[in-house]
Design a binder for these strands. Sequence first.
DNA 1: CTCAATATTTGAACAGTGATAAGATATGCT
DNA 2: AGCATATCTTATCACTGTTCAAATATTGAG
Lengths: 210, 210
Amino acid sequence: MSRSLLDRSIKSEPYHHGNLHATLLEAARALVEEVGIDGFSLRELARRAGVSPAAPYHHFKDKAALIQALAGESQARLGIASLKAIKGITDPMQKLSMLGVAYVVYAFEHPSEFRIMFRHELHSPLGETNQEQLEVNKPDPAFVLLKQTLIECRDAGCIPITSDNALELSTISTWALVHGLATLIVDGPLMHTIRTREQVIELTRQITRG
Amino acid sequence: MSRSLLDRSIKSEPYHHGNLHATLLEAARALVEEVGIDGFSLRELARRAGVSPAAPYHHFKDKAALIQALAGESQARLGIASLKAIKGITDPMQKLSMLGVAYVVYAFEHPSEFRIMFRHELHSPLGETNQEQLEVNKPDPAFVLLKQTLIECRDAGCIPITSDNALELSTISTWALVHGLATLIVDGPLMHTIRTREQVIELTRQITRG
DNA sequence: CTCAATATTTGAACAGTGATAAGATATGCT
DNA sequence: AGCATATCTTATCACTGTTCAAATATTGAG
């Protein structure tokens, strides 16, 4: 009791015990980036939030659910970063390039978040197809942004896309290229050769040029 | 004691206790494919191998080490599958296409193995650069195969590759494309739209054509 | 303002995990 | 045969995810 009072002594933190939901997500993000997704533990998280091991279960059904929420946040963050990257740019082809760079750079600078975003559990936890699942499977913002930009490219005559199917293919193709590059840098054989942000940008530019 | 005798009653299984090393890897492969990498437990593995929980530690330093060995096996398997895929084919461009298809198909049919191959721990566990690490970082067979084929393509004049740097870039680029596609199918948004092996092949062909 | 309904949080407990150390058992070598 | 060695077991530790009943705080109706 005295401890918890001390913990939230700085400001107001609504007496009961702050808004744990947000606090947990915040601390979880830091913890995951610090110890990686495998070293991540709910109990350590609770410890850092100054709360009992059972407390998080009133805000997240599961450890998986918490990570899922975390992944959602990261998706949103990546979406925002992407938006920032193309702000003010009019040439659709340049937009496309910037989107790619933003994607890979984000992966490079937040590797743990990047890994979490692509855990298969997030896409269908246990074969169940419950309500929440549909809510979670909301379209990835980075994905729709990419699609939109590709449409702009087509309309500007920069890329030959005839059918809807071709659009879908182009989207998948460019996404795959950029995502694969990010993976190779973050978790693959390029991990040790690519070390600086500038290298990442340069390599991404070169790869997406062809 | 009587139990262990019963367990290896079928055949010869060298009295002491069979060749655990191989048995463990075999069972681990099955277990991982069954429960996924997160559900995978060393104790359950020992249980299935009919051996005490501590036994595996005499053959693998760590849980991580075992998974690492598993990943090595999978890399080799993928290499073999790739070789099979281009056996008898002479046209280097067609070889390239077949390699891509083999890669994505392998990921599709052995998703857990595919995920394991790209865990960052395998590339540098804890920032240490010890001896074993260098042994583990042996070049990926699929990678060297891809590079070789690209060289053949250049020599045949199918692809304009001028410098060594350009060769490196082309290798990374095609690998990234194929790896990204595999990830999108196995762990990403394409998971639910692509369901059959034929769909995988068709999609990969279309993507790698451009 | 009071007090019951509700939302949060805690404490204790359970089963299961990775890992280590000391002792038992078999194998292979001389 | 007998000893060093590799292999396996038993017991144990610290830690984890999760659940449940009890304790506490917040809220809203009267």
